[in-house]
Amino acid sequence: MAKVVERVGDSFADRIYVPAILAGLKITTRHFFRNLFGQKETVTIAYPEVKIPYSPRWRGQHRLLKRDDGEPRCVACFMCSTACPADCIHIVAGEHDDQGREKFPVRFEIDELRCIYCGMCEEACPCDAIRMDTGLHAAPVYNREAAWVRKDQLLARNGRDYAVRADAEGPPCAVSSK
């Protein structure tokens, strides 16, 4: 069951160190030339000119989705702010003029400094109104105010062009009520 590891390095060749230097140089030289000439194999990239594409599931900053009529899909049910472990989503609900709509978020604000990008808000949303598929990093800001993202900013953000949830055809609230 147990496998005893093999301790090496006590031979005369190892003690005089020269073979180890040569063996080491061989490896580093191989890597050096591979990085120099093998365009595909190069480990480093010229960031920020070149960026490694994120995987489709990568969670970036949030965005709010819109209905067909351009208004937010969000129905201000507070599920995301309830599920949020970092307590970073702040919603003020308002009554909508349209009787079919009932509620909508008057204010919807996310404190991106508190956000831990765990994705629980996405998971908790019952009408696919919040997503984290913008591909945006947590950006450095000069003051705290700038990290406080408001509803219109969240609505203006665009997602990357693949569906996050392929399992559902979309919530009913995505369709205009009129």
């Binding site: 090496v8 390095g9 031979s11 190892d14 160190y17 063996a23 080491g24 490896i27």
Partner: peptide, 17 residues
């Protein structure tokens, strides 16, 4: 590669063994 660099390298071994 890591093993080839370190396993029998005397400088490393003298600090580790």
């Amino acid at each position: 590669d890591i093993r080839a660099l370190l396993d029998t390298n005397r400088i490393f071994l003298d600090r580790m063994k």
